[in-house]
Design a protein around this nucleic acid. Sequence first.
DNA 1: TTCATTTGTTAAATCGTTTTAACTATTGGT
DNA 2: ACCAATAGTTAAAACGATTTAACAAATGAA
Lengths: 336, 336
Amino acid sequence: MARNQITIKDIAREAGVSTALVSFVMSNATAGEPLYRVNSETSKRVLEVAERLRYKPNSSARALRSGKTGTIGVVLSDISNPFFSEIARYLEDQAYGYDYNVIFASTDEDPEKFRRVVSVLMNKGVDGLILVPCGGTEDTIRELVSSGVNIVLLDRTVPGLDVSSVVLDNRDAAKCITEKLISRGAVRIDMVSYSMNISNTRDREQGYLDAMAAAGLSGYTHIERIAHNSYGGISQYVSEAKDRGVNAFMIATNTLSLLVISEIYKQGFRIPDDFMIACFDRNPLYDIYGSGIVYVRQPVDAFASKAMELVMSHVSAKPGKKRPEEQIVLSPEITG
Amino acid sequence: MARNQITIKDIAREAGVSTALVSFVMSNATAGEPLYRVNSETSKRVLEVAERLRYKPNSSARALRSGKTGTIGVVLSDISNPFFSEIARYLEDQAYGYDYNVIFASTDEDPEKFRRVVSVLMNKGVDGLILVPCGGTEDTIRELVSSGVNIVLLDRTVPGLDVSSVVLDNRDAAKCITEKLISRGAVRIDMVSYSMNISNTRDREQGYLDAMAAAGLSGYTHIERIAHNSYGGISQYVSEAKDRGVNAFMIATNTLSLLVISEIYKQGFRIPDDFMIACFDRNPLYDIYGSGIVYVRQPVDAFASKAMELVMSHVSAKPGKKRPEEQIVLSPEITG
DNA sequence: TTCATTTGTTAAATCGTTTTAACTATTGGT
DNA sequence: ACCAATAGTTAAAACGATTTAACAAATGAA
C-alpha cells in the first residue's frame, strides 16, 4: 500500500510541541472543547496541523502500544446463511458506531474449525469475541472464558458457564408457531430439526412438545433429526411423512425450511393444501404462500446491538473491574 | 484480552540465540527443512522452544515493522444480500488459504459511504482492497488507483481505468436468458433494472436489447428503471405491465427479482401462467416454479478466487515491480 | 513570604517485531 | 600462506504510537 505516512512526529514539529502532547490531544480531544490540562490554544493548533497534514494515526502502532486493536472477532456458522449474514450486517453497522471493526469467520458447525478460527482471531489480536457456539465447542469456550477473554455468545448458549449471551426465547417461539399451526387445523405435526446438540434447536424442540402437549396432541409427535450438511434423506422423509398422514411441518431452521419446502413442491404437493409450515426466519418468498407458512421473525437487529453493547461494555471496563456477565433473552415476533 | 504474551525474546533467551535469529527462523522456516544460512540444529531448537512455549507472534508488532497487516479490505454493496454474502464466504475461505483475513464493509450503493468505509479500511491498514464500485465512486477509485493502492474491482468495472477486475460477462448472460424466454414463447418482455449507473446492470440491459433485436422483437422493448431502495412503485408497475400485455420479466438483480415475484403473487397472478421470469442469481425456492423461471447462475466461487488471486499477486509483488493489472471476465451458467 | 496545588508540557521508556549492517569462523582455491 | 567467499550469528536501529514520571511556571492559601 502506498502510504506517505504523516506521523505524530511531523505534527509535533510543525506545531512546536512534543509528540506526547500531540498524542494526548489526538486521542482525547472531543469536539475541540475544554481539554484537561491542555491549553486550548495549543490543542487547537495541534488539531489544525493534524487536519492540514491529513494525519491518519497508524493503527498498528496504536494497537502495539495500547494493546487494543479496535477489532471484534465474530465467529458464526456460515456467513452465507441469510440469518447470519443479516446479523453480520447489523454487527458491522453497530461496530462502526463504536469506531470498531469486525472480522467474521465461519465454522460450518465444525468444532475443530471453530477452535482454529478462534485461535486465528485471537492471534490477530481482537479486543473481544462474539461467538455462535456449535456442538462440541463447550470446552474451547470454557477455556477462553476462564482465561479472561472478552466473550459474548450469540444465538445459542452454553449451559453452566458464566458468560454473556444474547439469544431468542426459542422455546416460547417454537410453542407459539406450533400453536398457530394447530389453530389452523393441523393435527399431525412433524418437527424437522438438526441432530447436532445446540441449545437453540433443543429449546425449539421443547417448545414444539409443549404446544403439542398443551393441545392434547401428545399422542402424535415426531421429531426428525437431520445431520448437518447431509440432506440426502429429506426426499424420502417427506414422502413417508405424507404416508403417515402428516399435514404440517414445524421446522427448526431456515436452511431446513427451504429444503423441505422445495421437496414438497418437487413431489407435487402444495402449501397449504397438503402441508402447512411453521418455521424460523423469514424469506422474501414466504409471503406468496399466505397463511400456509407461519414463521418466527427473529429480532436480528436487537441480536446485533445487544451483543455489541455487551462486548463493548467489557472492552471499556477498567482493568481489574470486570463487568458482570449478562444473559439476554429476546422475544420473538410471529408472522404469517 | 488477557494474553500472557510469550515474545520472541523469551524464545531467544531459552534457546540461547538472538532475537534476530528467532525472528528469521520463525518467518522463514518451511516444514523444518534446510534454511539458508542457519544451522539446522539451531533452527530446530528454536522451533522446538517456540512450540513448547506456545509462542504466538504479535501481529500488531509485525504489522508495524513490516508494513503488512495480513488483512484485505472488501467493500461491497450489502453483506446481507445473498449474492454478496455468498461471495463473502468464499473470500473468507480464500483468504484463509493465504494466511490472510478479510474485513467487510457495506456501502448501500452510497458513494459517500463508499468513500468513508474505504478510508476507514485504509487507516486500519489493509494490504489490499477488493471493491464493488457503486455509481458515483469513479473519482474515489481513480484516486486510490493513482496513489498506488492495491485494488481489484469485483462484479462491476469502472471504464477507462487501468485496474484489475473480475466480472461476469453480463451482456452475454442477459442475452442468453432473454433468448430462453423467447424460445419458451414470451414475446412482450419487460426488463426491470436499476436506475443507478453501474456497469453490470448497463451491460445486462444491452444483452436484453441484443436478444430482442436478434429475435426481431425490437418493436416492443421496455426497460423499467427502479431507484435503489425505493421500491414503492413496483406494485403499480406490475399491474400496468399486465395491462400492457407483458408476459415475461427479465430482471437485473436478485433483490428486484424477489420483489417482482412477490408482487406478482400478491396481485393474484401466477408463474408461468401469467408471467415468465428471467433473472440473475439463484434462490433455493426458484426450483418450485420449474421452467417458469430461468436464471443466471454466477460463478461466485470463481469471482472470489480470482479476485483474491489478483489482489494477492499484487501484495506479494516486489516493491518497484508492479504486476500488470488484469481484467477477468467470467462466463455465466444458465439454469431453469 | 512560603509552601502546596494546579496547569501545561516534555523526555524517555515501552510495545514486539523485522531488518540492516557487521562481525567471527570456517572453508577452499591459488 | 593469503585472500575471497560462505556460513552462522548478533547488536542495534527502526516502525509510530501511548504512557509514565517528572519538571517548570503560575496560582492560591496561609
